[in-house]
Simulated scan of single mutants.
Amino acid sequence: MTAARARLIEELRAYEPELIAIRRDMHRHPETGFEEIRTAKLVADKLRAWGVEVAEGIAKTGVVGTIRGSRPGQRAIGLRADLDALNIKEAHGRDYRSTVPGKMHACGHDGHTTMLLGAARHLAEKPDFAGTVHVIFQPAEEGMGGGKAMIDEGLFERFPVDAIYGMHNAPGMPVGMFATRKGPFMAASDTWVVTFRGTGGHGGAGAHAATDPTLAVGGFIGAIQTIVSRNVRATEVAVVSVGHIAAGDRNAPNVIPSEAIVCGTARSYSPAVRDLIERRLKALAEACAGTYGCSAEADYRRLFPTLVTHADETDVSLAAARAVVGERAVIAEAPLLTGSEDFAFMLEAKQGSFIMIGNGVEPDGSYHYVHTPEYDSTTRS
């Protein structure tokens, strides 16, 4: 370990008790997209207490802190973290578990925000750098496009940057490791809803006279599995998954419903594959509906673009990671991730990069993945 690295770690450790308290406070009080009022106030109050210039209310609850270096220089960078939680009921067991029914920080955004607050405090106390750093706390990352909303409200006009950087925790990757790659890294994310309609009918006495949308749903769910296996080139990466099915009333099992709904997600990396998935999904919905005398209405919505890192800025991220944890703990050619990130919008607007940081595993080798009730952003050995 170099003397500079040891000194930096020692300086950051001085903040550790307060940062742990901040993270656990956010974890106890999760707020979902565009409702992060308490969280945003906590962030803004801490930044001001540390002498950071603060702007609030960007895309409703976004916060930006500006730190200027003591050395001459005109360049500026942005460092981004996300504020929002998820609509998930947290499992019992932690003394700092969520106090908000049905909501929890199940993706580690409380950890991301706390890490960026720690970085902001350090930079504000030791501004021995050239140029400007904007610390960007973004709302509504979880499928609601808070990053794009900040951009649309003039984020980069108000806070110009030459490069933008983001990061995400990675459960299952050892603590002290980093991973990134140049070019496409995380998938484009789309959501789709297909509504099948028939006449419905009496499930016992009149089934022969009904057109049954549940039959169309059953055929459709099987058919869409062929989109990736038979329509997407084997050397490409794509995912199509069903996440929700609804039809009828569980208290009326003798009624064939007149409407059935299937919702899901699609992930891809190339525009051509994205177009293909949308086209085939709609065609299969219509074909399956027609087979059983029903109709189908498909709504396909494109949420996040592919997250594409830029070469020069990724080299900067890799060099910074290696300076902290060493060459052997940094993966420069990480595999593609089929998760998505609306930081992709920021990387479309500005040069920049995105990196994963190991969140570790339990002593027995197990870990809880993001978006699950038992997940916790606290790192493990």
Rank of each mutant, 00 (worst) to 15 (best):
73 G>H: 01
232 V>L: 02
325 V>Q: 13
21 A>R: 15
63 V>P: 11
151 I>H: 02
113 T>Y: 05
371 H>F: 04
173 M>F: 05
280 R>D: 09
367 Y>R: 12
285 A>W: 02
268 S>W: 07
57 G>R: 03
315 D>T: 00
247 A>V: 10
373 P>A: 09
350 K>M: 12
84 D>W: 00
206 G>W: 03
182 K>S: 11
171 P>M: 09
59 A>S: 14
188 A>V: 00
240 V>R: 05
372 T>S: 05
81 A>P: 10
170 A>E: 14
62 G>P: 01
66 T>E: 12
116 L>C: 08
260 A>N: 06
101 P>A: 15
366 S>A: 10
235 T>G: 06
117 L>K: 00
204 G>Y: 01
274 R>E: 13
302 R>V: 08
343 F>T: 11
45 D>Q: 11
131 G>K: 00
246 A>F: 05
373 P>T: 04
326 G>R: 04
107 C>M: 03
350 K>E: 15
52 V>E: 15
342 D>F: 04
253 P>A: 07
10 E>Q: 14
209 A>M: 14
179 A>Q: 13
146 G>L: 07
228 V>W: 06
157 E>G: 06
155 L>I: 04
32 T>C: 10
56 E>A: 02
108 G>I: 01
133 V>G: 12
157 E>Y: 06
277 I>T: 09
317 S>R: 02
334 A>M: 07
190 D>Y: 02
221 I>G: 08
39 T>W: 11
344 A>K: 06
198 G>D: 09
158 R>W: 05
221 I>P: 11
145 G>A: 08
325 V>K: 01
249 D>C: 02
334 A>P: 09
2 T>E: 15
24 R>G: 09
367 Y>V: 12
283 A>L: 15
215 L>R: 12
263 C>Y: 02
337 L>M: 14
115 M>D: 09
286 E>H: 12
219 G>M: 07
243 G>L: 01
303 L>F: 08
286 E>S: 12
34 F>L: 12
5 R>L: 01
62 G>K: 01
147 G>P: 03
372 T>N: 02
301 R>Q: 14
138 Q>Y: 04
72 P>S: 05
121 R>H: 13
